[in-house]
Design a protein around this nucleic acid. Structure first.
Lengths: 148, 148
DNA sequence: CCTAATTCCGACATACATGTCGGAATTGTT
DNA sequence: AACAATTCCGACATGTATGTCGGAATTAGG
């Protein structure tokens, strides 16, 4: 499950993706439009800016905008500053199980994380903004292509 | 990402799965073997017992054991008491997007959760206890079969 | 019957994510 | 030059997951 900060980051990025590429959008107006806590969203936006995902402009008429076009920005990239990156080190079993020779339980756990990451890495912001009631095929292919 | 409580629950369940089906194993000995905080693990075990996943026996020589054999117990079942169940209600976009007519972003988000749940629902404890260095094929098939 | 081992239960402590606040620094507009 | 809008920054408040503690209830074994 994505953290709340991650979801806020996604919502804000999608909001920006629906604006002209050059336009600056203020944190306050985004919080208003998305009905999110303004101060907290501001924190999230600042973080995204530091990570190089957003550009920021201070002063009047300033705000934020995407640094890359929505087709080039994956969900993983938007979300990763707010998620734990470190893969689990300890084995699910008690025994001595090192990363070079992982047990089955260990392997499966890494796979769960990888699978999840891969879904997010394959989805761009523009994917999420496709016309509503899009064909259900899209989802199937996304899932099937997990293992490549 | 699974919560820490979920991982503890998995570790304990796998530990129990490696014991004879009738044997009682105390919380203290599990904490010792798995090197987990004993009092907190006790809480997790009590919860699993309340959920009907473990049987418990009070008093001397008591402890916990699996209520079902490892082949019949999925990871999802073990983990679900410690994870948020409610699917996300609000849409990632600001607009009016109801569950009966979800937008693409909404759909995809539900799919991510479903995909993750499905992986955990298809994996049993005995799957995780297969011989180490098992063939890598297993993982491929597990991922491919996500969408059925 | 007594004792030791154990689950059970609730209260409290700590860490971290989330949320709020007040102000400093910057910049377009007048 | 003054003003207003904005990002930036750090401090604080709150909530929830995690961790710790002390004891009550139960039960096997002597």
């Amino acid at each position: 499950m994505l953290s709340r900060s991650s979801v806020y980051a996604l919502q804000a990025s999608l909001h920006l993706a629906q604006h002209p590429p050059e336009a600056w959008v203020s944190a306050a107006s985004m919080a208003e439009a998305l009905e999110l806590p303004p101060e907290y969203l501001a924190k999230v936006l600042r973080r995204l800016s530091l990570e190089g995902i957003l550009d920021s402009s201070r002063g009047a008429r300033g705000g934020y905008r995407l640094r890359l076009p929505p087709e080039a920005l994956t969900v993983e990239r938007v979300v990763e500053p707010f998620e734990e990156i470190e893969p689990p080190k300890v084995c699910l079993l008690g025994g001595p199980c090192h990363s070079d020779r992982p047990c089955t339980a260990h392997l499966r756990r890494l796979e769960w994380n990888e699978a999840h990451k891969r879904i997010l890495a394959r989805t761009t912001l523009s994917d999420l903004l496709l016309d509503e009631h899009a064909p259900a095929e899209a989802s199937r292919s996304a899932l099937i292509s997990l293992d490549s």
